[in-house]
Nucleic acid binder design. Structure first.
Lengths: 169, 169
DNA sequence: CGAGACATGTAAGGGGTTACATGATTTA
DNA sequence: TAAATCATGTAACCCCTTACATGTCTCG
């Protein structure tokens, strides 16, 4: 079996926040990472199961009540995660932006821009609020990664806003 | 059957450049659109077939030689394309950038940046060359969409370069 | 005319999307 | 205690990815 982006999201979240259930994985994704890489909850139930089959996580199932399954990183999983982090992907990602696709095929620029602009403005405001909170409560050994990813998100939102604004006319 | 992004890419390319074979679709994608939304060639054989089943394109198969199939927009396909273009997607796209994902999970910023930076610089140079050619040969009734999409690509590349440059240390 | 590139597909498998479905808690 | 929401999954289907495979042209 081979590990993909979803796999590393699960492994990474397990390391970041400790052992948890799929539902809690969903919440962790929604909190931060989901802003730039969302994962449907059905995948967050299926993927840990797959990772368990490969020995990358262990399962601890409740015997009663909700019978939820709690997953935890195994040494093997931790090692796989370390290897991926140590050898980061060296390829370009595509924009794959549906609005841009429509624009490419001659959708009216002003119309696309008018639809996109408020969305990006709202997203930027949300990001900036997150950043403000993060910067106010930053501790000495807090992880830097999430804040850096947020920064990238902020910049791209600003870029989109600038781009669409020129097209609203 | 419902139409997805790939469908509109096929329909759009057929309108932009006229009837063609899957292989030529591949070339058209590679030329411009593929920079921000690539499609594997296997899809460019399968998708027109699907569209033909739905009546959105017509097929004209060669009887001999390579027996290639030439697809053309039908009025129904043209109408579907128009409808999509007239009602452009009003949703945000995610970044879904693998390098950013690694950064989020604490990959060494300088290492990720060092790997990403040359790729983005090369891409930007490529885009700027394309833009220069496009701007030099622009005609009065040339389509604007591709040039606008290219512009978006250029800005995002600049943004990425600026971002990663700050992290290379 | 042989080799390489160009051209044209097909097949298998997994992940993503979406919808369905039900159990457990909380709240009115 | 009924309703609403939270929580926890399952199932089906299609697209995407990757690899495989072969046919046709072109050029040395």
């Amino acid at each position: 079996m081979d590990l993909n982006a979803t796999s590393f999201i699960v492994l990474g979240l397990l390391r970041l926040g400790g052992p948890c259930t799929p539902y809690e994985l969903k919440q962790r994704v929604a909190g931060s990472l989901g802003n730039f890489w969302s994962v449907p909850h059905s995948r967050l139930y299926a993927e840990p199961e797959r990772l368990a089959a490969g020995g990358y996580v262990s399962v601890d199932a409740e015997a009663d009540g909700r019978r939820r399954k709690r997953y935890a990183l195994t040494p093997s999983g931790e090692q796989a995660l370390d290897a991926w982090v140590a050898d980061p992907p060296a390829q370009l990602a595509e924009l794959r932006n549906p609005a841009l696709l429509a624009l490419f095929f001659e959708a009216a620029p002003a119309a696309v821009a008018a639809a996109q602009l408020p969305l990006h403005e709202a997203k930027l405001a949300e990001y900036e609020a997150l950043a403000a909170v993060a910067d106010a409560n930053v501790g000495p050994d807090d992880p830097r990664g999430p804040r850096l990813a947020l920064e990238a998100g902020i910049r791209h939102e600003r870029e989109w806003i600038s781009f669409w604004r020129e097209l609203v006319g």
